[in-house]
């Protein structure tokens, strides 16, 4: 057995003549939290569905937990927890009924105990009789996570799990994800949020159905090769506007009262920095490029994919 939970090569999916996912490779090490990033419509959901056997790829092959994604989707389903983007449990069933139903789908031998444990973990034991449709967004998401964890899968596929959830619930959610990961569960999570991406061990960025970059989170900034200067000083807005005029400056990101000025051509950017620093009005400091700048850079270069293919 390999130490990869997911390994796919050349995955391609075509909807109505449009290549939604194009020649996609991915390796997800066991036990990792793997972040799957990309703009709307870039093919994240389609890729996840192909990897767990819900969609048949037009081309490509691979394994998920050692099972062939083309021929053994039934085995994959038994061992994977898949949380859909939108809440897709039964709103007209109670919390307990939903969990019980899902547990029955996996034919769990100790079903009542598992459901009770899941309810206790959720902290919903006293509200088990409440209809799922009456829960708030954050609770729905926690219930959905509990439902897809009820059969103790070795791999979790989370499709934008925190969309539309308040910051506190998001933080709690990620604590839970890290706890699961520490317990040996592999997690593949797609997200829009940078602050979530930085919590991942590995990251893949996809746009227009193509993988732009993939690797350990710590290496992503180096792979993009972004040089960043940190600028601090008075009247930062005027400086920002001025910097944006310079072709050498590819990106200006503002973090509170601080500007992060980045570019891929280190020499050109250093010249600009020297020029501005000579004015003496602001403090210029070269620093190692972080993940944040890297993502802003990636997202800027690949905007909303639906807009891009509207014609």
């Amino acid at each position: 057995m390999t130490d990869l939970a997911i390994s796919v090569r050349g995955l391609t999916k075509v909807f109505n003549g449009r290549r939604v996912v194009d020649d996609f490779d991915m390796d997800v090490p066991k036990g990792a939290i793997y972040g799957f990033l990309g703009p709307n419509g870039s093919g994240k959901t389609t890729t996840i569905r192909m990897m767990c056997g819900l969609l048949t790829p037009e081309a490509g092959s691979g394994q998920c937990l050692g099972f062939d994604i083309r021929t053994q989707s039934q085995r994959i389903k038994e061992n994977v927890g898949y949380m859909t983007q939108r809440f897709s449990l039964y709103e007209d069933l109670t919390i307990r009924e939903n969990l019980d139903f899902i547990a029955r789908m996996y034919r769990l031998p100790d079903r009542p105990a598992r459901v009770a444990a899941a309810l206790a973990d959720l902290g919903l034991a006293d509200r088990a009789g409440q209809l799922a449709g009456t829960l708030s967004g954050g609770w729905k998401q926690r219930l959905a996570l509990a439902a897809c964890m009820i059969h103790a899968p070795r791999l979790l596929l989370l499709d934008e799990p925190t969309a539309g959830v308040d910051p506190k619930a998001r933080r709690d959610f990620w604590d839970e994800i890290r706890r699961l990961s520490a317990a040996g569960v592999t997690v593949l999570v797609s997200t829009h949020y940078m602050d979530e991406a930085v919590q991942c061990d590995f990251i893949a960025y996809i746009a227009y159905g193509r993988k732009l970059i993939a690797g350990p989170a710590t290496e992503i900034p180096d792979m993009i090769g972004l040089v960043t200067w940190r600028v601090e000083g008075p009247d930062i807005a005027a400086l920002e506007a001025e910097l944006r005029q310079r072709p050498e400056v590819e990106q200006v990101a503002r973090f509170g009262a601080v500007l992060h000025v980045s570019g891929t051509d280190a020499e050109a950017l250093d010249r600009v920095a020297g020029e501005f620093a000579a004015r003496g009005s602001h403090s210029w400091q070269r620093q190692k490029g972080g993940l944040e700048e890297a993502f802003i850079y990636l997202m800027a270069s690949a905007t909303d994919n639906f807009a891009g293919v509207a014609s």
């Binding site: 767990c52 819900l54 039934q74 389903k77 038994e78 994977v80 898949y82 859909t84 897709s88 449990l89 039964y90 899902i102 789908m105 996996y106 034919r107 439902a147 897809c148």
Partner: peptide, 9 residues
């Protein structure tokens, strides 16, 4: 909910 159903065995 069909998505959930299909994702189960």
């Amino acid at each position: 909910t069909m998505e959930t159903l299909i994702a189960t065995p």
